[in-house]
Design a binder for these strands. Structure first.
Lengths: 207, 207
DNA sequence: CTCCGATGAATGAATCTCCATTCACTCAAG
DNA sequence: CTTGAGTGAATGGAGATTCATTCATCGGAG
């Protein structure tokens, strides 16, 4: 009884997505076979095409749906309140911590999103932009509170912050997760971003 | 006379590499055909295999040799002297400026290097590490001069700096080079890195 | 209640396309 | 004549996608 019948339990689509995360993160999109994903999700090759238009669509759905969960989750954590600086800290810690909770997903996003954003025609990474929005929101709030420089260019800063975190996650993953534990790194980056590289009060030659 | 004969002028290998940069940056590694690169470099398909072991090797050679030139070039610019802070500024401006001078190369490195570092067995991006070394050297020098916080974790900071720059370059490229001119962005990032996000003297709640 | 045809989810072998790589051959130069 | 760089058509393998087929389930008829 548990094997056949239409839409056996309704979890097939999700099983496929989860398997895709695993396979894509292990081999990369181009080196992953649809048949591998089928095997890993306990489904026939053809079944994947009942739920996704094609291999590209599988990857895009993965980005949007899983990234959507990540955005919703971090928004929930931030809603708890606190100052903008607190929130930035929470955001950063949460980002680095994703590596432990959802390492496969983070790896796929880090490594494949660029490729896809650049080469897949008519794909806009909507949920990824939302993630960047979360950073903007925090920075703007910080300005209002007077904690963050009012002349900060938020749209450059949010990219810089994301880029820094992303690169550090990548380092962690590529090192076989041996160097720089996420929580240690998070603290270090927080300080770098908040205080900068210089010794307090040093003349930096503005301009 | 100019068409036939062994190693016609000795520039074939370089023509192939240059064409590869163009094609890979346009289509991505996996969507590029070896025959396209052959056509673009005015060479037969088989000729490519006289100079490179296979398609992967072509990409790796491209990374190492072109990146090597980039490293040598930035080192030359930095040798001029100045304070560590000046040098960091030069480094950042140079990095962002590469997008104008060598956009194809920068795009290939940004988009393909991650894939390759992660999935190509036994490939260590030596020249890329050297590029990171350049940042470390500047930061260490800054510590010695007393301009940079002595407790800064250099190996986290250099990755964060690279990541920030890389992401900003990517944004510029993906926006069709319409948003955030490199030189403007460079100035903004410099300030972010040197002074941080906060208003001077603000309490950040260290620890 | 039982039987039967309709439905459509699921399957996975077969197909179809694509492309990296090879290699038998060409020919300029020494 | 010999050498070997260069060629590009042919090959072989891979893997995305298709589709004819299977079978659990369901609803209506008897």
């Amino acid at each position: 009884m548990p094997r056949r019948g239409p839409n056996n339990g309704g979890d097939k689509r999700d099983r496929i997505l989860r398997a895709a995360v695993k396979i894509f993160s292990r081999n990369g999109f181009f080196n992953s076979k649809v048949s591998e994903i089928a095997r890993a999700s306990g489904v026939a090759d053809g079944t994947i095409y009942l739920y996704f238009k094609n291999k590209d669509d599988l990857l895009i759905s993965l980005f949007e749906e899983k990234m959507g969960e990540v955005v919703a989750d971090v928004r929930r954590r931030l809603a708890a309140g606190g100052s903008a600086i607190d929130k930035l800290r929470i955001f950063i810690e949460n980002h680095m911590d994703l590596l432990e909770r959802e390492s496969g997903l983070v790896e796929v996003i880090m490594v494949e999103l660029r490729q896809s954003t650049k080469f897949l025609k008519d794909y806009t990474p909507v949920k990824f932009f939302e993630y960047l929005e979360v950073i903007s929101d925090i920075l703007e709030e910080g300005k209002r509170e007077g904690a963050i420089r009012p002349d900060l260019n938020v749209s450059v800063a949010r990219r810089a912050i994301f880029g820094a975190l992303d690169e550090l996650c990548l380092t962690y993953v590529l090192s076989g997760k041996r160097k720089y534990h996420p929580s240690v790194t998070a603290a270090e980056v927080c300080r770098l971003l908040l205080e900068g590289l210089c010794v307090p009060g040093a003349d930096v030659g503005k301009g």
